[in-house]
Amino acid sequence: MKAEEIEIIVLEVVAKIAKRDPQSLSLENKIAEDLGMKSVSRLELAALLEDRFPVTIDNFEIRKPKSIAELVDLIKAKM
């Protein structure tokens, strides 16, 4: 999977959980500060990413990325 495809899917997933328009998001967005995503939403974020990529993400790993770019890096590292 190309890096660009991964970014597009991650943006889609984050947009769904944060209830935002994917077009309004950028990789630089901070997950908690900019998107107001609570800790509890990270469980759903991990489940949705696992559903879209052939990866497993535990409940500790998913708490680490601060920005969407860091989330993309997490997925890339696991692919």
Binding site: L43, E44, A46, A47, L48, E50, D51
Partner: peptide, 11 residues
């Protein structure tokens, strides 16, 4: 939660 079944099963 308006989630797909795959993600729901993982949860």
């Amino acid at each position: 939660k308006d989630m797909p079944p795959g993600a729901g099963l993982r949860i």
